[in-house]
Each structure stands twice: as structure tokens, then as C-alpha cells.
């Protein structure tokens, strides 16, 4: 439960950080390659979850990019270990595959795609007029974005974060392949259900499922109420 809350929160924060600039870019600017980026962002949504996990596993573990270039270099996993290894507590190694970072990465890959879609729709609905006025009053692009656009899009940001959080909680396929379902180490709620079923403990699986259903319902109701309040304010 603790690991689930931790990984989902980190995933949601990272997803919002990715969704804000990409959503804004896709909504406000026309540039060459926009259709390609748009299509690439949909890939984690349309790919089968197990394929996402397998691709991540190959990318981080088996496929150092140097190999294609004919250079003998470390894999992403080894690079990660070299960079973060000295900062890890004693007795813990800084790996990715089959460890907690893999859980976050697997959740983030899919959840961020949903957050980007939500943020893009939010920016599409916000008129660019206010930021144009801010630009004429002396703000530069970054200031206009932070002081005008982000406050206007705040409800969209919270919706994107909530969606990413709930999507991360329900993620299972990529975690199974990329992080494994190791009891007490990379076990999140969704993988607990799988583990309980695999040992024939249906009661345990049902209880964990019920917990997930409850969390999902609470979050959905909260988001709906938030949305209704914002609509009322908009009408007034």
C-alpha cells in the first residue's frame, strides 16, 4: 500500500511536469513534426501493456544504444547505477529493472500519455487572448506561461494529475514485465491481486480489489465535484 501510494504520487507529479510543456506546445504552436509527436504520444495508450513493459525492459537492460553505433559503452541501467549509486543508502544498489524505479517508470510511461491528452484539451479550451495581453504588457513567454496560463489551467492540471495517479494505480502489465512482482519489493496493489490469485487466495485478492475500487471511486467523485464547481464558476 505504501509503495503504491509513493509510486503513484511520484508518477502523477512527473506526468504533470511532462504534460504541461508538451500539452501547451501541441495546443498553441504549429511546427514541422507536430503530427509525428502527436502520434508518438498516443503509442503508450494504444500499445498492449505487456509490450510496453517488454520494450522498456529491452531499452534499459538489453539494448545499450552504443551497440547500434558500434561503440562499447554502458547500458542505461549501468549509467543509472553509476550516477545514483553513490547517493543510495548502504545495502541498496541503484538499479532500475526489477526495482522500485522500474515500477515508477512503467507507470509513468502510460500515465503521462493520458496526462498530456488532458492538458492539451485544457489548453485548447483556454483562449490565448489573456497571455497575448500579458505579452503586450511586458511579460516574456515564460512569465506569461507561469503567471497567466498555468493559473488559468490549474483545474486541468489537477485533473491531469488525478488521472495520471489513478491510471498509475491500475497499471499492471508493464510492471509485471519490467519490475516483476516481487513480494515486499516491487509489489503494488495491482500486482498484489495477481499474486493472491496465483496462490489461490481469492479472499485476499477480493479485499485488495475492493480497496482499489474504493480508491478509484473516491478519486472519480472528487474530480467530478471539482469539475462541477469550476463549471458553476465559469457560468457565473
Amino acid at each position: 500500500m505504501k509503495l503504491t501510494l509513493f509510486t503513484c504520487t511520484v508518477t502523477a507529479l512527473l506526468s504533470v511536469m511532462v504534460a504541461l510543456p508538451i500539452g501547451y506546445l501541441l495546443s498553441r504552436y504549429d511546427f514541422r513534426g507536430k503530427a509525428l509527436i502527436d502520434a508518438v504520444l498516443d503509442i503508450p495508450i494504444v500499445l498492449p501493456p505487456l509490450v510496453v513493459g517488454l520494450s522498456l525492459l529491452i531499452l534499459f537492460n538489453k539494448m545499450p544504444p552504443w551497440e547500434w553505433l558500434g561503440i562499447d559503452g554502458p547500458s542505461f541501467e549501468e549509467m543509472f547505477g553509476k550516477i545514483f549509486g553513490p547517493f543510495m543508502p548502504e545495502g541498496m544498489d541503484a538499479g532500475i529493472t526489477y526495482k522500485v524505479p522500474a515500477v515508477i517508470l512503467a507507470q509513468f510511461t502510460v500515465a503521462a500519455a493520458f496526462a498530456v491528452r488532458t492538458m492539451r484539451n485544457t489548453f485548447d479550451q483556454i483562449s490565448p487572448r489573456a497571455e497575448q495581453v500579458a505579452l503586450t504588457l511586458g511579460c516574456n513567454r515564460a512569465q506569461a506561461f507561469i503567471r497567466v496560463v498555468v493559473p488559468e489551467a490549474w483545474r486541468g492540471v489537477s485533473t491531469a494529475g488525478t488521472l495520471a495517479w489513478t491510471r498509475a494505480m491500475g497499471e499492471f502489465g508493464p510492471i509485471l514485465v519490467f519490475a516483476g512482482t516481487i513480494r515486499g519489493r516491487t509489489e503494488v496493489l495491482s500486482s498484489s491481486v495477481f499474486l493472491e490469485i496465483s496462490i489461490g487466495n481469492l479472499e485476499g485478492a477480493v479485499i485488495v480489489s475492493l480497496m482499489m475500487v474504493s480508491i478509484a471511486v473516491v478519486v472519480l467523485i472528487a474530480v467530478r465535484m471539482w469539475g462541477r464547481e469550476s463549471r458553476k464558476k465559469f457560468v457565473l
Binding site: V18, L20, L41, I43, I58, L59, F108, T109
Partner: peptide
Amino acid sequence: AVMYLLLIGGMLMAD
């Protein structure tokens, strides 16, 4: 954001 795009691209390329 750039790293996320590279991650998806890299994932597909790796596959």
C-alpha cells in the same frame, strides 16, 4: 518532457 519523448521513441526503436 524531452526525455519522455525520447523514452517512447527509444522504447520503440529498442524493440
